[in-house]
Structures are given as structure tokens and as C-alpha cells.
Design a protein around this nucleic acid. Structure first.
Lengths: 131, 131
DNA sequence: CGGGATCCGCACGGATACTG
DNA sequence: CAGTATCCGTGCGGATCCCG
């Protein structure tokens, strides 16, 4: 902050270490389980339909998928395209903003997959020491 | 499940798109708000004490900080060093595994900070259209 | 087909008080 | 100082029914 002359410049000092900073909630949103998986799927597949996503994210409830998509849409991360056919067709795809997020989010997913074994070993060791 | 004969094959096919896969919960853990902030702080500062972390993560409750640290410790991401002095001194620091995670996790935090403005604009536009 | 609405259990997450 | 223990509200998250 403190940079002078921000007449219409919204400062951008969004520090999530500050109490009540909105970037903290954004952090939680984009790091959430379902958001990461939705992002990843849309990144691979391009546009996807609701049911298609629902099947890929095995075990997700309709409610959570809808909620996740709504939030991502509201945040400008995914775009929602409605085709007014007889059975309505809805497609979701990443916005440019969403694609930039995908890059970083894909790495967390990759890390989780790659290091699951190491984490599992650490857990076993920890639990064994607790006895 | 249902795949017969997983005798001693550690496979490492930890696909979070699969229902019930443990990597899904790991994904949630490491992407959580407090975990990201703890990782970031330990990454900058090196070893930190409990109270120090508590002050940096403004607004975190003791319970959540303890819980976060415990989980990260169990997963082998942070190490807990106890110095048996009269007032007990406890320091937390990143393990090598934790440092590898820090690299990817720092990017989400950076993304959230960098794109908070764009997200806020998108939200305003979305909310305005909802009227 | 793609949700919106609703009910509900339960675990998350905060506040407080107490202990080694 | 660094937790643990406890109480408790809120909202997550699943299940179900129904509508456009």
C-alpha cells in the first residue's frame, strides 16, 4: 500500500495473512477438493456437460457439483454455456482466468498423486509411534 | 476395490477422480486455507514457534492451528521439535517433503493474491446480472 | 437433462477454560 | 508457552423430490 496516485487503482494488497482478507476465502475455494478436480477435468477435456463432469468426479453429489460450478462461474473461472434445446444442454469450460489457475492447480493434484505413498508411510510411522 | 489380487503391488495409481481414493482427502488437506498459510510462513521464516505462527496467521484459532500442524506433521510435511526447557519450547519446520509441497502451494497463494481483483470484478458482474 | 428446493446428520471450526 | 478438553453454533455435504 501507500503507493500514491491510485485514483482508480484498487491497490491489490490482498494479503491472505491478514484477518478478514477476502483472498483467504478465495484461497479456500480454489484449493477445495471438487474445484481442483473440476478444473483438471475441464482442462483435459475442454468443454464438458454437467452429467459428464458428474461421472468423471466419481462420488460427487449433484448439490456439491452445482455449488462448485456456481462458485467457479461467479469467480470468472469457468464459463457456462446454455443451449436451449428441448432437453436443455449446458456446457462448462475454462475462461482464460481459469486456464491460468489450472496451471497451478494441476500441480497440487500432481503432487498429491505423486507423494501419496510417502505421505501414507509417514502416517503409518506417526501412528505407530503414538502407541 | 473389486480388483482381485492386490497382493503386494503398491501401484501408485492414486487417482483422485476415483471414489474413495485417499489422495482425494490429501488434496483437501494440503489445499486448505490454514495449511497453505502455515506452509508459506515456514517457507519464509524457517523454523517457527507456535505462538509465532499464531500471530502471523491473524485470526486463526488455537484449535485450528494445532489441528493443522498435527495433520501436517502426521503427513510428514512439517517436523516438530520439542526443547524441554522450563517453559516448553516447540519449533516447527518444513521437511524435505514439505519443501517440495511449498513450491506448488506458494503458487496458489500467489495466484489468489494476484487475481483477487479480477475475481472481485467477475463477482460484481455476476451479482449485477442476477438482478 | 440440468439443476433448484428442502430436510437433516454431523463434522468443521470458533471461543473459552484448564493443564503440564 | 504450548497445547488439551469442552461446549456449541454454523454450514458442509449427502439424499430425495420436483420443476423447466
Amino acid at each position: 500500500m501507500a503507493t500514491a496516485g491510485q485514483v482508480s487503482e484498487p491497490i491489490s494488497s490482498w494479503d491472505p495473512y491478514t484477518r478478514g482478507c477476502p483472498s483467504r476465502d478465495l484461497l479456500d475455494q480454489i484449493g477445495s477438493k471438487w474445484a481442483v478436480l473440476v478444473l483438471g477435468e475441464l482442462g483435459r477435456h475442454g468443454a464438458c456437460r454437467f452429467t459428464q463432469l458428474r461421472q468423471q468426479l466419481a462420488g460427487v453429489s449433484e448439490k456439491m457439483l452445482t455449488q462448485t460450478l456456481r462458485t467457479l462461474e461467479r469467480d470468472g473461472i469457468v464459463a457456462r454455456h446454455v443451449t436451449p434445446s428441448v432437453p436443455v444442454r449446458v456446457d462448462y469450460e475454462l475462461t482464460p482466468l481459469g486456464q491460468s489457475l489450472l496451471v497451478v492447480v494441476a500441480q497440487i493434484k500432481a503432487w498429491a498423486e505423486a507423494n501419496m505413498d510417502a505421505v501414507r508411510d509417514a502416517r503409518d510411522a506417526y501412528d505407530a509411534a503414538s502407541d
